[in-house]
Design a protein around this nucleic acid. Structure first.
Lengths: 97, 97
DNA sequence: ACCATAGGCAAGCAGCGACTTGCCTATCAA
DNA sequence: TTGATAGGCAAGTCGCTGCTTGCCTATGGT
């Protein structure tokens, strides 16, 4: 659902995960765990991050590709486009010739 | 705070309020009440909408101008710009010459 | 002065969501 | 095959938040 995007972005930890993936795509769950702890100092269980990734995946903000026993996560910014254009007024300066 | 924008957008009722204001700026609380009920069919108390407006106002998505006993609400889309550009990758096609 | 309208404050309830803990499955290396 | 690594499932706790109800303030009309 496209409506899940707003819910997915509501949590600050999920936004940090998106930040991490924006910086380096294709990270696995454990990579994200260690980087979130060491770089952002948040103490969170592995399961907590896994659940956050599930939400981001449901919102299609994160795409997943499996390979062996690894599961790589890629950022997908496409759903973000719609959430701004929804409320852009028709009086936008660049749309008026 | 800019972080409040995500929280403000998380609720579907608040998004409807933004829709209403995008269509017609400068509505008062009672106007929004009646229009949300009649046009979108959601049964919500006046106080509920008032609290939603407080959240939107804190996120600076809605600006307020008082006049007599009336309080008019205007949409402000400016905070929306940042929430997309935050995760836009540097590999954007239009930025590469 | 009176009453109706427009809005605000505060307490209370109920449900969702974030997080943990414990256990289970699957893949790779030795 | 055994053990270690990568990840998943399910139940349970706890706090936040959306919503209601009741009462209060202030402005405007008559």
């Amino acid at each position: 659902m496209a409506e899940d995007v707003y819910k997915a972005l509501a949590d600050p930890t999920r936004r940090l995960i998106l930040d991490e993936l924006a910086e380096r795509d294709g990270q696995t769950l454990f990579e994200l765990c260690t980087r979130l702890v060491t770089r952002h100092g948040l103490g969170l269980s592995r399961q907590g991050i896994s659940q956050h990734l599930a939400v981001l995946e449901a919102a299609e903000l994160v795409r997943v590709r499996r390979q062996g026993r690894y599961k790589f996560h890629d950022l997908n910014t496409e759903p973000l486009e719609h959430i701004v254009t929804r409320w852009l007024r028709p009086d936008a300066p660049e749309s008026t010739p």
